[in-house]
Design a protein around this nucleic acid. Structure first.
Lengths: 120, 120
DNA sequence: TGATTGTTTGAACAATTGTTCAAATATAAT
DNA sequence: ATTATATTTGAACAATTGTTCAAACAATCA
């Protein structure tokens, strides 16, 4: 995505300054908003959403995750790396296998809250 | 993104069939998973996240939303169309202006649950 | 009427995403 | 050692995303 250019302030005039100021003041920091979007983008992909759900039920090796999702081992491994980088999952090695499990208290609540939304 | 080819089942063997079956059975439908990811992808963009938050505080016209976000009118309008299509916001016209407001009970809870996550 | 203001829209574009494929690791078995 | 199995990794690629720009609409005002 292209980076925001210096905005043309003249074009963006405020209609209701009081409201605008109030909302701007209440708005969470750019840092928080960014982290928020980052978390949500994890669940914005069906494959990752399924992985999160699966791991909320069971500790699983990569092979079995791929089997559950119906995706390739490689694709799953790439997704797991993203989840690892975000510290959402942890893993342990056992023989040739690597077992993954959830490593985040909140992500599952987010999942369930979302599911409520979907099911109205 | 390329579409999933028919997976090479031979490559994806199951290690623990019982676990795999159990998780597969418990897994929400593909339809639900897809809707879930769709909802989350709305909040996966900082601009949209800010819009949702702003509208949770005040009914706002496009111009003021752009002002609050520091984005162009056009960019905001494009994002609003996405939110409209997903029935997350509603709008009313007043003179030359269009006022948007939230039209979804759950999205705000999702936002707040996410914020909890971010702030640990 | 024509000019102005607020918003929407579509095309174009760069950035990002998620997959596949092939090759590299790592661990265990023969 | 060689082979087989489980996983990771990087490059390549198509699909998608979010922005900008210019043009179109829509509503009001002179």
């Amino acid at each position: 995505m292209p980076k925001n250019r210096e905005q043309d302030v003249c074009e963006v005039r405020s209609i209701d300054r009081a409201k605008v100021m109030a909302v701007k003041k209440a708005m969470p920091s750019d840092r928080d908003i960014h982290s928020l979007s980052e978390i949500f983008s994890v669940l914005a992909d069906p494959a990752r959403t399924k992985i999160i759900y699966a791991l909320s039920k069971e500790e699983l090796c990569v092979c079995d995750i791929a089997n559950i999702l119906g995706n390739s081992i490689s694709a799953v491994s790439h997704q797991l790396r993203i989840l690892r980088n975000m510290r959402l999952v942890k893993f342990r090695k056992e023989a040739k296998r690597v077992y993954y499990s959830l490593d985040d208290r909140h992500i599952n609540r987010l999942f369930n809250e979302g599911l409520k939304h979907v099911r109205e």
